[in-house]
Amino acid sequence: NLYFQGLKYMVPGARVTRGLDWKWRDQDGSPQGEGTVTGELHNGWIDVTWDAGGSNSYRMGAEGKFDLKLAP
Rank of each mutant, 00 (worst) to 15 (best):
S57Q: 11
G53D: 01
G35P: 01
P12D: 08
F4Y: 15
F4K: 10
G13Q: 04
A14W: 04
A52T: 10
D47Q: 14
N43S: 10
G54V: 11
V16I: 05
G33S: 12
F66Y: 13
L20V: 14
D26F: 07
D47F: 13
D47W: 14
Y9D: 11
S55P: 02
F4T: 12
G19V: 06
G19N: 07
L20N: 13
G39L: 03
M60L: 06
S30P: 10
G44E: 02
M10W: 13
G35Y: 04
T49L: 14
R25H: 15
P72G: 14
Y58L: 01
L7G: 08
L70K: 05
V37E: 01
Y3W: 14
P72V: 14
I46D: 01
N1G: 13
P72H: 13
M10E: 03
K8E: 15
G53Y: 03
Q5S: 13
G53A: 04
F4S: 11
V11P: 06
D47V: 14
Y9P: 07
W24A: 05
T38L: 09
T49K: 12
R25I: 10
A52N: 11
Y58R: 00
L2R: 13
I46M: 07
G39P: 00
K65M: 09
A52H: 14
Q27G: 07
G6D: 15
A71E: 08
D28K: 04
G13Y: 06
Q5T: 12
P31T: 09
Q32R: 13
R15Q: 02
T36W: 07
T17Q: 13
K8F: 11
G54E: 10
V37C: 07
L7N: 08
D21V: 04
P31Y: 08
A52F: 10
P12V: 13
G33V: 04
S55L: 09
P31E: 08
N1L: 12
A71P: 04
E34D: 08
V11C: 14
M60W: 09
Y58H: 02
G39K: 09
D67M: 03
R18A: 07
W22L: 05
L70F: 15
V37P: 00
V37H: 04
V37A: 02
F4W: 15
M10G: 02
K23E: 12
Q27K: 05
R59E: 01
V37D: 01
P72L: 11
G19D: 04
L2V: 14
N56T: 05
T36R: 07
K23S: 10
Y9K: 09
T36H: 03
Q5P: 15
H42C: 15
D21T: 04
D21W: 05
E63V: 05
W45D: 00
W24P: 06
E34K: 11
K69G: 07
Q27V: 06
L7V: 10
D28T: 05
W45S: 00
V16T: 00
V16Q: 00
T49P: 00
G19S: 06
Y3P: 13
Y3L: 15
R25E: 15
D67S: 04
S30K: 13
M10I: 09
I46R: 00
M10P: 04
P31D: 09
G64C: 14
K69V: 12
K65H: 06
G19Q: 05
R59A: 01
W45M: 06
Y58A: 02
R25D: 15
V48R: 00
G61T: 02
W22G: 03
R25T: 12
N43H: 12
